[in-house]
Design a protein around this nucleic acid. Structure first.
Length: 563
RNA sequence: CGGGGCGUGGCGCAACGGUGGCGCACGUGCUUUGGGAGCACGAGGAUGUGGGUUCGAAUCCCACCGCCCCGACCA
């Protein structure tokens, strides 16, 4: 491909709105262009990388017997109404009406379509297991896109779905995907850590996310460097030292003026924050006012709270709502909290003599004890893991790191197949719902992660497996010495006829521009043809990754380009 | 949705109440050709949109739209 007519342009300056290296470099080097917030065009270079990433994924999916197909982007809303997600999913699902006034949606995922297909396709246990996948555009109207390709609204995802007769079958399909994903990210050059994760809105029994460690990551991971334990903070349960065993002391109200925060309160009373209990008020999606009680030195984990309450989501309660329930914000107490559903963290339930609000402006209670002073409606693990907490496996202090989720695998179970009546006839002659799993990899996000992991101050450094072209030929001094163009043209042709298209910078630009661009674009090999190289007996080959360069005889360069 | 920031040639920026400029990129010519070349000439703008204030608005005020960052949110 000759750069003189290639659909791209490089930028000398960093785009002002790009902060992450991957965003900056992909825009500067002419791989992608932004159309709107979270909406990007892939220019030929970007599209080519994307296809190479897809090919790696395709090969590994095919290798485990997953069958490629394609499902639509536009769905009739009826399917989504049948599974209930038309109602449960919020504004992130784009909805519209067709000309006949029928509700339609833009696909944000494809469980519904798969389940409806299974209804038609699968009749007998003899057909199971089956696995399918496709690469398809998803649209999710995220409240906030960010980081270039890291979080976008429209993107291509490889999503696969496994269909099994029972849980044991699902376990096997899940394991196949786990192994395939490990190979995929290894081949793509994206180091990932599989972490146990929340099943979220997808429902289901088990899930892992494949995380790429990056400071810009939106997830917090809890990692143990000693034993390798890893989990998303949303679900991680770490060990915290047991509260001291004490005899319950008499409840005592104390005046604590101006201590609406835990830090103020602990300082005022001269006790550690871990001897206090704090109350957080939330309202669930189904309208319940809930107060969650955790220790003063810990934070409520929203995911855990949602799961404990068996709801779909929650929001902070307004002070008015708290007052309406008869409580005093800042001094609220689980003692006598009649107007709210009281959820207490397990650690609170095991602790004696904690300081808590007195439900009276400017007052707190000393020596509150669960069971004696109040009876919670629910006791559950509610807190977020903290750096230095004990690893749940080995007890060593855990560390917290940010990560970008590039892939996820879910054991869905029968939620969708039951809702849509996708059943098979078992060996026992009875109908059973098909057991599903679903598995996703964001292609564009994977591309961005590859760049995050493979770049230097000069530009992108593509791993050979995903590079848009294996090599980048640069001609220098072609107008001075006709042999330069002859040799460079011949190398370009030769690679092409060997089935390996390479980039060929035949532009009439200065050497500096061409070499700088070559490094910015990031092909694994840069082949420089110039009067100087010809005089030295061939062409200069630069390995982009190491910067190592050497003049090689043309025959050797030809062999390199042929592959 | 809350907080903050920014919208001026393709890109990066200046001008902050008085006729819109600079660098890079772009076109033409000459020179140059191994690390973002030089000289000369040139083209390219309803200053995001709509109101308002003013003799006069890119500049001040209001509203809206768009984009970025932090948070909320998020398979």
């Amino acid at each position: 491909m000759r750069l003189s007519h290639f659909f791209f342009t490089t930028l000398r300056d960093d785009p002002a709105d790009a902060e992450m290296p991957s965003h900056r470099l992909l825009v500067r080097a002419g791989y992608v262009r932004q159309l709107g917030s979270g909406i990007y065009s892939l220019l030929p270079l970007g599209y080519r990388v994307s296809r190479r990433v897809e090919q790696v994924i395709r090969e590994e999916m095919d290798a485990i017997g997953c069958q490629e197909m394609e499902m639509p982007v536009v769905h009739p809303a009826d399917l989504w109404k049948e599974t209930g997600r038309w109602y449960s999913v919020g504004a992130e699902m784009a909805r519209f009406k067709d000309r006949g006034g029928r509700d339609m949606v833009l696909a944000m995922t494809h469980e519904e379509v798969v389940a409806s297909l299974l209804r038609d396709v699968v009749k007998s246990y003899r057909q199971l297991p089956m696995m399918i996948y496709h690469f398809q555009t998803k649209f999710r109207d995220e409240p906030r896109s960010r980081g270039g390709l890291i979080r976008v609204r429209e993107f291509v995802m490889k999503d696969s779905y496994t269909c099994d007769a029972d849980e044991a079958g699902l376990d096997a399909s899940y394991d196949l995907h786990y192994a395939a994903y490990t190979r995929i990210f290894d081949r793509l050059g994206v180091p990932t850590i599989p972490v146990a994760s929340d099943v979220g809105m997808m429902g289901g029994s088990q899930a892992h996310e494949f995380m790429f460690l990056n400071p810009a990551g939106e997830d917090v991971l809890v990692l143990c460097e000693r034993c390798g334990f890893s989990a998303n903070r949303q679900v991680a349960r770490t060990r915290v030292s047991e509260p001291p065993a004490e005899e319950p002391l008499p409840l005592e109200e104390v005046e604590t003026p101006g201590t609406a925060t835990i830090a103020d309160l602990a300082a005022f009373l001269g006790v550690g924050a871990e001897r206090t209990a704090k109350a957080l008020f939330v309202v669930t999606d189904d309208g319940r006012l809930v107060t969650a009680i955790v220790r003063g030195d810990m934070d409520v984990n929203e995911t855990k709270l949602v799961n404990a309450l068996r709801t779909t989501g929650l929001r902070p309660a307004h002070p008015d709502e708290i007052k309406a329930a008869g409580m005093v914000p800042g001094y609220a107490s689980p003692v006598g909290a009649s107007g709210a559903f009281v959820v207490v963290d397990e650690l609170i339930a095991r602790s004696a003599n904690l300081v808590a609000g007195a439900n009276r402006e400017g007052y707190h209670l000393r020596n509150t004890n669960v069971g004696r002073d109040y009876t919670p409606d629910l006791v559950a693990d509610l807190t977020s893991a903290r750096e230095g907490d004990g690893c749940p496996e080995c007890g060593a202090p855990v560390v917290l790191r940010n990560g970008i989720e590039v892939g996820n695998i879910f054991k869905l179970g029968t939620r969708y197949t039951q809702a849509l009546g996708a059943t098979y006839l078992g060996e026992d002659g009875l109908e059973h719902p098909i057991v599903m799993g679903s598995y996703g990899i964001g292609v564009g996000r994977a591309v961005a992660c590859i760049v995050e992991a493979h770049h230097d101050e000069k530009g992108i450094v593509w791993p050979a497996e995903v590079a848009p072209y294996p090599a980048h030929i640069v001609s220098i001094g072609a107008t001075k010495d006709p042999r330069v163009a002859e040799v460079a043209d011949a190398l370009h042709e030769l690679a092409f006829s060997a089935g390996r298209e390479v980039l060929y910078d035949d532009r009439d630009e200065s050497p500096g521009v061409k070499l700088t661009d070559a490094e910015l674009l990031g092909m694994p090999l840069i082949v420089t043809v110039s009067p100087r190289s010809l005089a030295a007996g061939g062409a200069e080959v630069t390995v982009r990754e190491t910067g190592e360069r050497s003049v090689r005889p043309l025959a050797e360069v030809e062999a390199l380009l042929r592959g």
